[in-house]
């Protein structure tokens, strides 16, 4: 059959008619799905993140074994697909004969908790200070900017180490340490974006409508910052996960035998040459988690932009 332009037209019209009967929800769903297709990488990231979250939430039901159960007879078993591998230990066992897959799955709980909570602290601190500095300017800005600059010049590891050393290594203290070290990025981005928005006419309009400063900040400036904050937050979640691993790797984070990816990486270091899987799989878990969160964050930014919401 020959293809003629009119047919395309008819087809298109037919489709439009169909669309007119659609309910609002279905239309929205269709738009989201179409958008999703444009954001394939984001979907991939979302998928990785989804698996991570499900794993973290339902670890006790999903994990093949007990993360603390030692079996010296079965220590340092390679992954199951290798020679001498055991089919009951998919990714092999560590130096105490604990199942590696089980421990990585339990480790996801620590990583996600630390990543999300630390970023929550960072956002709360950074955005608040950034908003105040950017909106008020002048002395407020000078003081806050000075703190931010000092904080940024200070090596992360030194501050985090001293904080953990003073507070003692525990999950809560790691979150506090990471939160207190990571917030300046948010303060900076928020400050500069707020300064730009402060001069925009819709903010002047809000002022002339006699709205309070709080209302202007919360209703008119903050929503316009969400895309930047969101993207930054996803990057920071990934970074907090890596930093938690780093602290744990250095022995300042999660203490053994609690399974954390960083601790596992540190334990596997000694066996790097021959029992490579001990360090490789936790490392891959960190990498995949960070990558997935970053990809998903990019897509999320595109989705929340009202300019892209309707195409």
């Amino acid at each position: 059959m020959k293809w003629i332009p009119e047919m395309a037209q008819i087809k298109r019209n037919g489709k439009q008619k169909l669309n007119m009967g659609e309910t609002e929800e279905r239309k929205l769903l269709r738009l989201i799905l179409r958008k999703m297709w444009h954001l394939r990488l984001g979907v991939l990231g979302g998928f990785v993140l989804f698996i991570l979250v499900v794993t973290a939430l339902f670890t006790p039901f999903l994990a093949p074994g007990d993360p603390y159960k030692q079996d010296i007879a079965k220590r340092l078993l390679p992954p199951s697909w290798m020679e001498k591998g055991d089919s009951r230990h998919l990714l092999g066992t560590d130096h105490l004969g604990r199942d590696l897959l089980t421990r990585i799955m339990y480790g996801s709980r620590i990583s996600l908790t630390v990543g999300l909570s630390a970023v929550f602290v960072e956002v709360a601190l950074g955005v608040l200070l950034g908003l105040l500095a950017g909106f008020h300017g002048g002395k407020t800005d000078s003081v806050i900017s000075f703190i931010v600059n000092v904080k940024m010049a200070f090596p992360f590891i030194l501050l985090a180490m001293s904080l953990v050393a003073v507070l003692g290594p525990s999950l809560e203290n790691i979150i506090i340490a990471l939160g207190l070290t990571g917030w300046p990025v948010f303060a900076r981005v928020t400050r500069i974006e707020t300064m730009k928005l402060r001069e925009r006419e819709f903010v002047l309009a809000a002022k002339s409508l006699a709205f309070s400063t709080t209302r202007i900040l919360v209703r008119h400036i903050l929503p316009n910052l969400i895309p930047s904050i969101l993207v930054l937050a996803t990057v920071e979640v990934a970074r907090a996960i890596i930093r938690e691993s780093l602290l744990s790797f250095l022995g300042l984070g999660i203490q053994p035998p609690t399974p954390s990816w960083g601790t596992m990486l540190a334990e596997g270091r000694d066996y790097m040459l021959l029992q490579w899987w001990l360090a490789t799989f936790p490392g891959m878990a960190i990498f995949l988690a960070a990558l997935g969160i970053n990809l998903w964050g990019d897509a999320l930014r595109d989705l929340t932009d009202p300019h892209l919401r309707k195409s």
Binding site: E201, L204, S208, R219, P223, N224, I226
Partner: peptide, 30 residues
């Protein structure tokens, strides 16, 4: 409330994240 302003740039004078209902109605509610 007695003196109001209309701005030059219609692209910058409306908050892009609020619906028209909110842009016009916020002051009425507040």
């Amino acid at each position: 409330t007695k003196m109001q302003m209309i701005f030059q740039d219609p692209y910058s004078s409306l908050n892009p994240r609020l619906r028209v209902r909110e842009i016009i109605g916020e002051s009425i509610r507040v």
